[in-house]
Computed example of a mutant assay.
Amino acid sequence: MKQIAWLFKWLLKAAIFFTLFAFALNNQGDVTVHFFFGTRWTAPMVLVVLSAFAAGLLIGVLGMVPRWWRHRKAARRARSDADSARATLAAETNASPIAPPHGL
């Protein structure tokens, strides 16, 4: 079963690669992108599409970074609060520290 899944995964990757490769071969014509103040850029269409995709990806990732930092900070704070509560409980009961549940 694992070999079939592995083969299917590689066939899917190959299909995606060859589809994108055919797209690049079919779009080799030059295209001009006009910016502000008379500036323009002439390049093959596939490079223009690829750069637009990369710019969108970069903007999306940069938009997620502040929220990601907030979540990491909250998780770190919750973990330290749980550790201090566990230590306090162990000191109060005068027993060995409570082990965290499996997987945490």
Score class of each variant (00 low, 15 high):
R72W: 08
L50G: 10
V48N: 00
A74Y: 02
L7D: 08
L58R: 05
G38E: 02
S80Q: 11
A54V: 15
V49I: 14
T88W: 13
K9S: 14
L104P: 00
P100Y: 06
W10N: 06
P44I: 00
S51Y: 05
K9G: 10
N94S: 14
A91S: 13
P44K: 03
L50V: 09
L25P: 05
A85M: 09
K13A: 11
N27V: 02
V46P: 05
L20G: 14
A55N: 07
A87Y: 02
K73Q: 09
L25T: 10
F37C: 04
V65E: 08
K9V: 12
I59R: 11
G29S: 11
F17N: 03
R86D: 03
H71R: 12
W69I: 12
D81R: 13
A52M: 11
S96I: 01
K73S: 10
M45V: 06
T39M: 09
K13D: 02
W41I: 01
K13E: 01
R70H: 12
R77K: 06
P97I: 02
D83E: 14
L57W: 13
A75W: 08
A54E: 11
I4M: 09
A52L: 09
K2D: 07
L104G: 11
F37E: 13
V33L: 14
W41L: 09
L12F: 12
W41Q: 04
V33W: 06
F53V: 13
L89G: 01
W69R: 15
A82C: 01
A24P: 02
D83L: 11
D83S: 09
R79S: 04
A24L: 06
R40G: 00
L62D: 05
M45E: 14
G56P: 05
G29I: 03
V33I: 11
S51F: 10
G29K: 07
A24E: 07
W69C: 08
A87C: 02
I16F: 11
T42H: 06
N27H: 15
A90F: 05
V31K: 07
K13T: 02
W68R: 10
L47I: 04
R72F: 07
D83G: 00
R86Q: 07
A99C: 01
L50N: 06
G63A: 13
A90K: 05
R72P: 00
A85D: 03
F36M: 12
L47Q: 10
F18N: 10
I98N: 00
L50F: 14
M64D: 14
A82G: 00
L20D: 05
T19M: 12
G38D: 00
P101Y: 06
N94E: 13
N26A: 15
V33A: 04
W69F: 12
S84N: 13
L50D: 06
A55E: 08
G38L: 03
R76G: 06
K2W: 07
F21V: 08
P97M: 04
A24C: 15
L7F: 15
I98F: 04
G103F: 07
